[in-house]
Amino acid sequence: MKESLLEILCCPLDKHDLELEDAEYEENEVVSGTLICTECGERYPIEDGIPNLLPPDMREGTPA
């Protein structure tokens, strides 16, 4: 994902802003890292450059 996507992404639960942590980049794209909700602290992984913003209770058993 491009980092500019963060300007509109938010927590799917409480719609607050997200902060990017542990980001790894390849050619201006974020390929892995964690998005953390600035309000509830929920953590959302970036997998293969795709932000996974499924709510945690709807994430079970999903392939990476």
């Binding site: 994902m1 491009k2 996507l5 509109i8 992404l9 938010c10 927590c11 799917p12 639960l13 719609k15 959302y44 997998e47 293969d48 450059g49 795709i50 932000p51 996974n52 913003l53 499924l54 709510p55 709807m58």
Partner: peptide, 21 residues
């Protein structure tokens, strides 16, 4: 992943819980 290969931005999410401002 197929969409990303076409050069499109992607976000994994449910329509009922959109992670957009």
């Amino acid at each position: 992943r197929a969409a990303a290969q076409r050069g499109l931005a992607t976000t994994r999410a449910y329509a009922e819980r959109l992670p957009f401002a």
